[in-house]
Amino acid sequence: MLVRPYGDTRDDGVIQFSFTLPIAYSIKAADVGKQFLERLGFHTVGIAECKAIDPEYTFYVAYGRTDSGIDPDAVKGDYLEVEEMDYYSINALIKEKLGRKLSVVGAAIESDAHTVGIDAIMNMKGFAGNYGLERYPEMDALNLGSQIPCAQLLKTALERDADAILVSQIVTQKNIHVQHLTQLIELLEAEGVRERFVIVVGGPRINNAFAKELGYDAGFGPRTTPLEVAAFLAQEVVRRHEEA
């Protein structure tokens, strides 16, 4: 079923805009803003606010109506569809089906000095009302922190006989995160150990389809909660355990 934006009434298609154009405010400015929105395909455009915020810039608040709609059921997203589980059922699944603790090693690799992502997922305190992986009694989770060379992450994962490796990449210049992420996979392949681990990547510039392109088993983007990652790890490690 098609849905349209809800403004004042259902399906009226009305959207509120706020934007800035690099033009000096003048009597003409309102028409410039209006015609710009009409070019984008909106009609019944109303300029509610049009003000100079600088001698060279004009800020707008406007309303416009669209005839376009979208069928949410037809949208294929770039996120991983993980079967929802709660904290207790994840622990129970690991205990029952794996029969030992699930071992996870995580790090922000190479030049990335930002732990915010890996901490949100792994730290015991957790994030977004979820406990992090360290809190799970059935997980043996080690967060190595930031700026961990790929080689060190690999060695640690081998020493601990880890089931899964979590990699975080937050900050990137000239897309250096891509080099780091493919480097880790090439290293694991060259060492002949790629298949020993479930390898997950997360970060603000990551989605699940991109994780496929990079050679990872799953990718998590912004707004991911520890629960989603924990559910995926438990399900995937158990699946591999049962198929082996």
Partner: peptide, 11 residues
């Protein structure tokens, strides 16, 4: 068989 590569990977 043609195998399209991935990003900069040479594997």
């Amino acid at each position: 068989v043609l195998v399209d590569g991935a990003i900069n990977r040479i594997g």
